[in-house]
């Protein structure tokens, strides 16, 4: 959840949210659609530099977030690159008594390609996430006319996540203080108890919150005054140049 905190602190926070979302999603779509290693590498470098250099997101934090899906990448990388077979049919074969784990050059190449593409996709999304607070992203969704009920639920859920996290953290600390996590078995039990009471707390709070909404005149619509962030001409131009560059690289490499 800290990512939101960094988004508020980012130097790019003052930019128009719709523009950042467009830039991010646009780049993401191009990375996926072009499926070209050079494009992916360019995106990784450029957006990484943008988030770290212009946005001033701490490098350590950025790397930690980028490495979250590492395990998924390794697991599925193996599955993509390797093949289980009764015959040693690949370029490299590892015998496992009953079958062979066969690695082929094309398989490895595909795995690497996919991984690079995945990292590029993440760079694009994290350019947005590290510079745009969640509520502004939800605001953009509202602008593109997603149903109001959905927007309302998203806004409320987002707010409540913080409340429940605080409650849960307190409960976990209290449980730790009473040695609730000493062993695997105790951990599971403690976790279940916390999850149970968290559920009760969340329902009770839900009722109180509804009262609070009503008392401020809630009438089925949650609306706020939002601060307008204007898109500057040079930013728009920069975005256009960036998109053009990505497309050019793709055309050039495709030949």
């Amino acid at each position: 959840m800290q990512i939101d905190r960094y988004a508020y602190r980012s130097n790019v926070n003052s930019w128009n949210a719709g523009f950042k979302v467009l830039l991010s999603i646009g780049t993401l779509c191009m990375v996926i659609a072009f499926d070209e290693v050079m494009v992916s590498l360019f995106v990784i470098m450029s957006l990484g530099a943008f988030t770290l250099g212009v946005g001033k997101t701490p490098v350590r934090v950025y790397l930690r977030f980028m490495s979250v899906p590492l395990a998924f990448m390794i697991c599925s990388g193996i599955a993509i690159a390797a093949q289980f077979s009764s015959l040693p049919s690949g370029e490299w074969n590892i015998s496992a008594h009953f079958f062979y784990l066969c690695l082929t050059k094309s398989g490895i190449k595909l795995a690497v390609q996919v991984s690079v593409k995945a990292i590029a996709g993440m760079s694009a999304v994290y350019m947005m996430a590290f510079s745009t607070p969640m509520h502004e992203i939800i605001g953009v969704m509202q602008k593109i006319r997603l149903p109001g009920l959905l927007i309302e639920l998203m806004n409320l859920i987002y707010r409540y996540i913080f409340i429940l996290f605080d409650v849960a953290a307190e409960m976990q600390t209290a449980a730790r203080a009473r040695l609730g996590y000493q062993s695997f078995r105790k951990s599971l039990r403690t976790f279940a108890l916390i999850a149970g009471s968290l559920f009760v707390v969340s329902l009770r709070k839900a009722n109180a919150y509804y009262d609070a909404l009503l008392s401020r005149g809630y009438d089925g619509k949650i609306e706020f005054l939002t601060e307008k962030k204007r898109l500057k001409a040079w930013q728009a131009a920069g975005g256009a140049i960036y998109f053009t560059a990505v497309i050019l690289i793709w055309r050039f490499c495709k030949r």
């Binding site: 639920l153 409320l156 409540y160 409340i163 849960a168 976990q172 730790r176 062993s183 951990s187 999850a195």
Partner: peptide, 23 residues
């Protein structure tokens, strides 16, 4: 129900992100 549903959503999120120490 709107706040109850929203709480349920938040609950799903928090429970899935909550660490279980030593597990």
């Amino acid at each position: 129900a709107v706040t109850v549903l929203a709480m349920a959503g938040a609950y799903i999120f928090v429970i899935s992100a909550l660490k279980i120490p030593s597990v």
